[in-house]
Design a binder for these strands. Structure first.
Length: 577
DNA sequence: AAAAAAC
């Protein structure tokens, strides 16, 4: 068993059957009743330890054991041991994930810049060196964060010394806490405490690309803030409205927001940022892409206070974007954990050839009708495709299917996230909205139903699994149309130790392939249905899927492309293969 | 290179 685990991590001896076996061991416990045909069930005793992505649903992370083996017995104790062994091979058992373990080897960390402060190996070091408040330390312990991860050890001292920072660290390695801890420490007392140093108005801004991620960061922030009367605002239409009163917004300490929401408040003069001392960009490469950049620049310009500290964080930072980031930062330190643009080795990645779009659904259905490890997260390339795929899965009898994309209402999105947090979703079909930052620790498998549009997207998508030192599995479907970008993704697999069929590695240069691809037809807006039998009674179930109604409205507005006639239109793509 | 997401 041990030998196998090592081999499989190296990615050489990997084979499907063995992996399945291994994963069964992981879900473990005396597997008895099989609630959901073909689905490897979580057993009762396995649930609390394994699925603490419930932490948000319960309003706080369950307290974790301080040392191996205490107060956990039987099957779950065994599971813990496996986890801990995993962590020896990697430092990615992130504090962000409220997990802890024995001292472990770390990813290589490189820090470049002038006068780089030494890393803090323990949270206690932050107290002795920087007088970090006991409250924050206590809260960290309270939520099971006992030892800094690589990015935390290096990043926190840098930020506490008021330096600008560009931090690159893999998915699930605790980036959120690397900026929350120093920002909260630097703010000291809540602004409402009438400390004259505080000035008036919000003192820290954290920007994230999606509502869901902003929400998650807000939750983390509340954990650290417990016991103090900080005003930490998750910016939304509603909260922005409550801040229309200047006397109210003058007492806010931290705002966590998506860029556009903040820009709108700025433009309607409902917000001043002249007291902001810390500005953090999470998912920095996304925040600095052409779509978000103008908004972010507007926010940066509005932060007029002298000595504004800026920091950017991401798991990926392409050279072009990095130049933009570095141009923004003042005498920055650049910290890279592990290898840039490389996913975690704990994620077993594979590529599956599906010929063309119509072949995808049958392939996925066959996969989901065999035993698999829920919850599984499926990525599609567009909102209509996410909705229609979820719909097709329900029609074909797959249990506990959910859907989440930005075309859904705020409430639908929130409900979908909480079902996910509670473990009620077995199959979550989504778009890029879920690709970055979301920390659902229970996710066992990621399936790229539609090929990712960039290496960055691929890395972030598959990074939703394999968190907290657990194993994860990532399957990527590719069609003939995806060939031009296949090699780039295949290289990512190879770099992180997953096997790739030899013929893929021998593909010609992408540029040649691209030329061949010229004139290809665009991907269908809806996924291709598997078959049209037995639909009528199944159609009733469709309303269970959030976003369905909306999709139709949108479809109608856009010219009915994805409406009820999509099945007749299924032939449209025939010419594209 | 292109969609999604931000409202």
């Amino acid at each position: 068993m041990e030998a196998f685990r090592l081999l499989s991590r190296g990615g050489v001896q990997f084979d499907k059957g063995r992996f399945k076996n291994d994963v069964t061991l992981f879900t473990k416990g005396p597997t008895k009743q099989d609630k959901g045909k073909g689905v490897a069930q979580h057993t009762g005793d396995d649930l609390p330890a394994e699925l603490d992505f419930f932490k948000y649903a319960k309003g706080g992370a369950p307290k974790r054991k301080a040392a191996e083996g205490d107060e956990e017995g039987g099957a779950s104790g065994k599971k813990r041991r496996l986890d801990d062994e995993e962590s020896e091979a990697s430092e990615d058992e992130a504090a962000e994930d409220a997990d802890d373990g024995p001292p472990m080897p770390r990813h290589k960390v490189t820090a470049k810049g002038l006068n780089v402060p030494p890393p803090a190996e323990k949270f206690e070091d932050l107290k002795t060196r920087y007088d970090l408040s006991s409250l924050i330390l206590t809260n960290l312990g309270e939520y099971g964060y006992t030892r800094p991860t690589g990015i935390q050890a290096h990043g926190i001292p840098i930020l506490l010394e008021s330096r600008d920072l560009a931090a690159i660290s893999p998915t699930g390695t605790g980036k959120t806490l690397s900026y929350l801890i120093p920002v909260m420490a630097a703010l000291g007392a809540p602004i409402a405490s009438a400390n004259s140093q505080n000035g008036t108005g919000v003192r820290a801004i954290i920007l994230a690309p999606t509502r869901e991620l902003a929400h998650q960061i807000h939750n983390e922030c509340l954990k650290l803030a417990q016991g103090r009367k900080w005003r930490i605002v998750l910016f939304s239409k509603a909260t922005a409205a409550t801040l229309a009163d200047k006397s109210v917004r003058d007492k806010v300490d931290i705002i966590i927001s998506t860029p556009l929401r903040l820009v709108m408040s700025l433009q309607s003069s409902k917000l001043e940022l002249n007291n902001v001392r810390h500005l953090i960009l999470d998912e920095a490469d996304r925040m600095l892409d052409s779509e978000f950049l103008p908004q972010v620049e507007e926010i940066v310009a509005a932060c007029s206070r002298e000595g504004l500290q800026k920091a950017v964080f991401s798991a990926t930072l392409p050279a072009g974007v990095e130049r933009v980031a570095m141009g923004m930062l003042n005498n920055p330190i650049r910290v890279v954990v592990g290898l840039k643009d490389t996913p975690l080795p704990l994620i077993a990645q594979s590529l599956t050839y599906v010929a063309d779009d119509p072949s995808k659904l049958p392939t996925l259905l066959a996969y989901l009708k065999q035993p698999y490890n829920p919850p599984v997260l499926i990525f599609t390339s567009s909102q209509p495709r996410a909705t229609s795929l979820a719909e097709e899965l329900v029609i074909n009898g797959i249990p506990n299917v959910d859907c989440l994309h930005a075309g859904m209402s705020k409430k639908e999105r929130e409900d979908a996230v909480s079902r996910m947090r509670r473990g009620e979703s077995w199959v979550m079909v989504s778009t890029e909205v879920m690709a970055r930052g979301m920390d659902f620790k229970g996710i066992r498998e990621v399936i790229n139903y539609d090929f990712p549009q960039s290496v960055q997207s691929y890395i972030h998508r598959i990074g939703r699994t394999g968190r907290a030192g657990r194993e994860g599995k990532a399957i990527t479907y590719f069609t003939d149309e995806d060939a031009p970008y296949l090699k780039a993704i295949a290289n990512v697999l190879l770099q992180s130790g997953s096997p790739v069929p030899e013929w893929i590695t021998k593909l010609p240069k992408p540029s040649k392939m691209k030329r061949k691809q010229m004139g290809k037809v665009k991907r269908a807006e809806a996924v291709n249905p598997a078959r049209s039998i037995g639909r009528n009674e199944a159609i009733k179930k469709r309303d269970m899927i959030a976003g369905n109604k909306r999709r139709k409205e949108k479809g109608a507005k856009a010219g009915g492309v994805v409406g009820g006639d999509k099945r007749d239109g299924a032939g449209d793509e025939k010419g594209s293969e």
